[in-house]
């Protein structure tokens, strides 16, 4: 791959050197196990993502008892599908209705329901989204291509280290004949944050 005619030194970029230094110090002090760090990274890179949340939504759409459970105790209902948070956080499911659309933000940092959505997209962590969605949610949603009827109220939920929200979108019309696994494919990440809607193939 490399065919340089001469040897040259390696370089570490500043951030890589800094992280390695922290890992060295903490490993020497017996505070971290590098293998455990690799396992955590692998989990978030390959195993946890919005598909987890989509399974929760599809189950809620097809199983009224599950939807009730989700409304009453989302932490337990979501854990029942095998998705549990690492920070001991409580989950709350917020259901969209024709009268109320829900959208999630973390105004202070980037709290996000990792267990069901994976790690947040860059825009979720950006100051403009974090401040503006609270002040002018309708305008921000329009920038995402989501225009809601004026009669639909928009409620903004501010996540914290202790409570994370999952938006339960309304089941799209015309999907009555679809089974749970087909419905999973309609649920987008943004639909579960509230900045989008489930996508029905045309």
């Amino acid at each position: 791959m490399h065919d340089h005619p001469h040897d040259h030194d390696n370089n570490l970029d500043p951030m890589t050197a800094r992280v390695r230094a922290l890992e060295t110090i903490l490993t020497d002090k017996g505070l971290v196990d590098p293998k455990a760090i690799d396992a955590i990274v692998d989990t978030y890179e390959t195993k946890i993502g919005p598909r987890n949340g989509a399974k929760v939504i599809a189950k809620a759409w097809t199983n009224p008892d599950y939807a009730d459970w989700l409304a009453k105790d989302a932490t337990a209902a979501i854990a029942d599908l095998g998705f549990t948070g690492r920070q001991g956080e409580h989950m709350q499911a917020v259901f969209n209705t024709p009268d109320q659309h829900n959208v999630v933000v973390c105004t202070l940092c980037s709290c996000y329901p990792w267990s069901v959505l994976g790690l947040p997209p860059v825009w979720y962590k950006s100051p403009p989204y974090r401040s503006r969605v609270v002040l002018e949610p309708r305008a921000v949603l329009a920038e995402f291509g989501l225009t809601l009827p004026e009669t639909t109220k928009i409620r903004v939920w501010d996540s914290t280290a202790e409570v994370r929200y999952l938006v339960i979108p309304m089941r799209p019309e015309g999907t009555e004949n679809m089974d749970e696994s087909a419905l999973v494919d309609l649920v987008t990440r943004d639909a579960m944050i509230g900045t989008g809607l489930p996508q029905v193939a045309s």
Binding site: L22, Y44, R51
Partner: peptide
């Protein structure tokens, strides 16, 4: 459904994340 987006742009970001979660 779209494939899940990659959460990290570079390995050091993943290591920083893993370090904090592990601690």
């Amino acid at each position: 459904m779209q494939p899940d987006p990659r959460p990290f742009d570079e390995p050091w970001q993943a290591q920083a994340f893993g370090l904090v979660v592990h601690l």
